[in-house]
Nucleic acid binder design. Structure first.
Length: 407
RNA sequence: GUGGGUGUAGCUCAGGUGGUUAGAGCACCAGAUUGUGGCUCUGGGGGUCGCCGGUUCGAGUCCGGUCAUCCACCCCA
């Protein structure tokens, strides 16, 4: 039995790899326009980093981490998400003490040991941004606008959902009230009975009709925000309004990771099946402190690259480059020499099999190359080549040395 | 972790009720009067029928197991 890639892990090769790189370069460019600098952090980190930041209770840490003990006896894990590592680096580089605003973008593989399905893999890739040190809700808005810019630049349709998760001042008491409410309810579905203990906020998201019936009476987070949080959430909406960004306030939008506070948002697509989130993000003002840094407000998002790649097509590639071939064995040396020179500046496909002109043209056409440069008997004798523009259907002859100089 | 669907050529798939050398389309390679591409035509290469076991004179086809994959739940990017 041949060795295959592990379950939920895929190879990336053309033509998909081309799409992948196109996405990355455009997203990176936009992030740079917004003042973000590229950061790379290790794929493997101490397990503790993720259990602390993502949260013990989350599925990601509870059962989805690729975790092992390395040869030095350290408990390490493949990163299940990108934020924790960036925050760790931010603190380790003492940027929290330096003050000011620091903005980073990153991309790379993430790992979660889950059952694969459409849009969900064990190794997947994210493009993310993180902004540190800016408390203003205008930063939240800027980040949402950056995500919008990226998504729209590929012509992708989406729905933006936003919510506020409040701050410790309002979330703590709210959670308390919700737990009290839940503790006296009868007839919750098994899932909700479990969530009631592990992650009470999540019950509001339950798809069971009977549960939703019950939750109609439950205390609402948005009605329990403190004045500050309520004001900021209102302001965020006003900013999005002025920027012409349509959104839905979704009180059930609860980001899955424990570290979120304040505004939360998600871009979802209707064309992806069950895993429909393409961008997820929000504010996490407590995380830096939680991981041992100076208290620093922060906000960011992550884009699921595999998911977003499903939602757009690249325009067809235009014809370009040179095909170099020969009709007789003696032509191979000059053909190789010519190809080598062309390749310094342009795409040059050298066909090393001697074949008929017809076959060469077929090959050049199939490879979507613009010019066929052929060395036949006459050309070999005269030190020239025969060139055909496959697009304009024009053909001519040129001295060997002039081909390159006229590129 | 739970449920359902699917595993036959590189890809998409045909192969009633078991029965000779397992097929098609696409892709690939070669050719269609001598040095002219996309269309068309002809030919060619390529298959442990996922794997293991069972039933049977005989299994791609029936049964069991196993693995893989897809979709959904859960959760999330």
């Amino acid at each position: 039995m041949a060795i295959k890639a592990l379950r939920g892990m895929r190879d990336l090769l053309p033509p998909l790899s081309e799409k992948y790189r196109t996405f990355l370069s455009r997203a990176s460019q936009l992030a740079e326009n917004y003042g973000f600098g590229y950061i790379e952090t290790p794929i493997v980190e101490e397990s503790l980093l993720f259990t602390r930041s993502v949260g013990e209770s989350s599925d990601i840490v509870g059962k989805e981490m690729y975790e092992f003990v390395d040869k030095g006896g350290h408990r390490v894990a493949l990163r299940p998400e990108g934020t924790a590592g960036v925050v760790r680096a931010f603190i380790e580089q003492k940027l929290d003490r330096q003050g000011g605003v620091h903005r980073f973008f990153y991309h790379g593989p993430m790992f979660r040991y889950e059952r694969p399905q459409r849009g969900r893999f064990r190794e997947f890739h994210q493009f993310g941004v993180e902004s540190f040190g800016e408390k203003s809700v205008y930063e939240d808005a800027s980040i949402i606008l950056l995500a919008r810019e990226i998504v729209e630049s590929f012509g992708i349709g989406y729905t933006l959902k936003i919510n506020s998760l409040g701050c410790p001042r309002c979330m703590g008491p709210y959670r308390q009230r919700l737990v009290e409410f839940l503790s006296v309810q009868e007839g919750l579905c098994p899932d909700c009975q479990r969530r009631r203990l592990t992650n009470p906020i999540r019950v509001l998201d339950c798809k069971e009709e009977s549960c939703q019936e019950i939750y109609r009476e439950a205390p609402k987070l948005l009605e329990n925000l403190c004045d500050q949080c309520a004001k900021e959430f209102r302001e965020l909406q006003e900013i999005l309004d002025t920027e012409g960004l349509r959104y839905e306030v979704d009180p059930h939008l609860v980001r899955g990771l424990d570290y979120y506070t304040g505004s939360a948002f998600e871009f979802v697509s209707g064309d992806l099946g069950a895993q429909n989130a393409i961008v997820g993000g929000g504010r996490y003002d407590n995380l830096v402190e939680l991981l041992g840094g100076r208290p620093t407000p922060a906000v960011g998002f992550a884009i699921g690259i595999e998911r977003i790649l499903e939602l757009f097509e690249l325009p067809p590639r235009e014809r370009r480059g040179y095909y170099i071939g020969t009709l007789l064995p003696e032509g191979l040396r000059p053909a190789l020499h010519l190809a080598t020179q062309i390749r310094r500046r342009e795409v040059g496909h050298l066909e090393v099999k001697v074949k008929s002109l017809r076959a060469h043209l077929k090959g050049a056409d199939k490879l979507n190359l613009r010019y066929a440069v052929i060395i036949g008997e006459d050309e070999l004798r005269k030190g020239s080549v025969w060139i055909k523009d496959l697009e304009k259907k024009e053909e001519w002859r040129a001295p060997l040395e002039k081909v390159v100089s006229e590129l």
